[in-house]
């Protein structure tokens, strides 16, 4: 799909070159991750599968897991749709505008997650800009409660995660050979058919990469849903946090974390499978 240029000359040296990074990953990622998994079976010492059984039969943790994955899915879908068309707007813009749009997309990246989440509370609270504007316009009399709702979490997380979709989409679009679009037009496809039948399939890998990134990040989101969401929007990260911070229960926290990891991997595998089937083995013409 995407043409990858392999530079043969470099392949021989590359395993050595990534060694420092691999070492770093092992020390700061794989070992802690392994510890978490091990503790889910050994805390308390005779736990075995007990932590898993308890977590999987506990309606609270199941509900929180549901919150997490539902929200991650909604946010991913929204972010991919908005981010793809944002990147498309960049693609279609003149260079000056393009840089402005890229800058606008990246600007929030350079502020901390906490600040961005708080910014949304300022916008969405009862006395916030949004409600003030609607009241000022005479559209509503009483402020609409927006904060501490699923709506607020969705809006906040989608906005915060958008750059993770925009960047890979834009990268894929920038690589599209304009000649293919001309070819499509010359073969009888109008601008709309060219977009859906040529441009979208060519850039879909970028969107898929963005979707994967967004989904993984969204599942692990903590600050934003806690700040913007109501009781029904609390993510599984909250349960893990309280298990560790309030009860020192590393076993439960480890089991929850491991289950989330497994679920993410399975969902991603299923997602890739669907994508691969959609784009690689289409019905013969």
């Amino acid at each position: 799909m995407v043409t990858a240029r392999v530079r043969d000359g470099r392949s021989a040296a590359s395993p050595l070159l990534v060694m420092p990074l691999l070492t770093l990953l092992a020390i700061f990622f794989l070992i802690p991750l392994g510890t978490v998994v091990v503790r889910s079976f050994t805390y308390p010492a005779d736990a075995g599968l007990a932590n898993y059984v308890r977590v999987l039969t506990d309606p609270v943790s199941l509900q929180y897991a549901g919150n997490t994955f539902r929200m991650a899915l909604i946010v991913t879908v929204l972010a991919v749709i908005i981010g793809y068309f944002y990147a498309y707007a960049m693609y279609k813009s003149r260079p000056g505008w393009r840089i402005f749009l890229l800058f606008a997309a990246l600007l929030p990246f350079w502020t901390s997650l906490l600040v961005r989440s708080f910014a949304w509370t300022v916008i969405l609270r009862d006395t916030g800009i949004f409600n003030q504007l609607l009241i000022g316009l005479g559209l509503i009399d009483e402020p609409i409660p927006l904060l501490r709702t699923s709506f607020a979490v969705t809006v906040g997380m989608t906005q915060i995660l958008l750059p993770f979709v925009i960047l890979p989409c834009w990268a894929a679009m920038a690589r599209v050979d304009a000649g293919l679009l001309s070819a499509s037009r010359s073969l009888g496809a109008g601008p709309v058919a060219t977009f859906w039948r040529v441009f979208v399939p060519l850039t879909a890998p970028g969107a898929a990469a963005g979707a994967v990134l967004t989904f993984i990040l969204a599942v692990g989101y903590y600050i934003t849903p806690v700040l913007l969401g109501g009781p029904a929007d609390q993510p599984i990260a909250v349960l893990i946090e309280s298990a560790v911070q309030q009860r020192g229960d590393w076993g439960t926290a480890g089991a929850l974390a491991t289950l989330v990891l497994i679920a993410v991997v399975l969902l991603l595998a299923a997602g890739w499978g669907l994508l691969a089937r959609a784009f690689l083995s289409r019905k013969e013409a």
Partner: peptide, 27 residues
């Protein structure tokens, strides 16, 4: 261009990489 009924052949072929040969010709 799509209304001119012209066949265009480009220097770099411009075959659609996401389609098979048959799908390209069927396009």
């Amino acid at each position: 261009p799509e209304k001119r009924n012209i066949g265009v052949v480009f220097q770099n072929y411009s075959l659609f990489p996401h389609l098979t040969v048959g799908q390209n010709v069927a396009f």
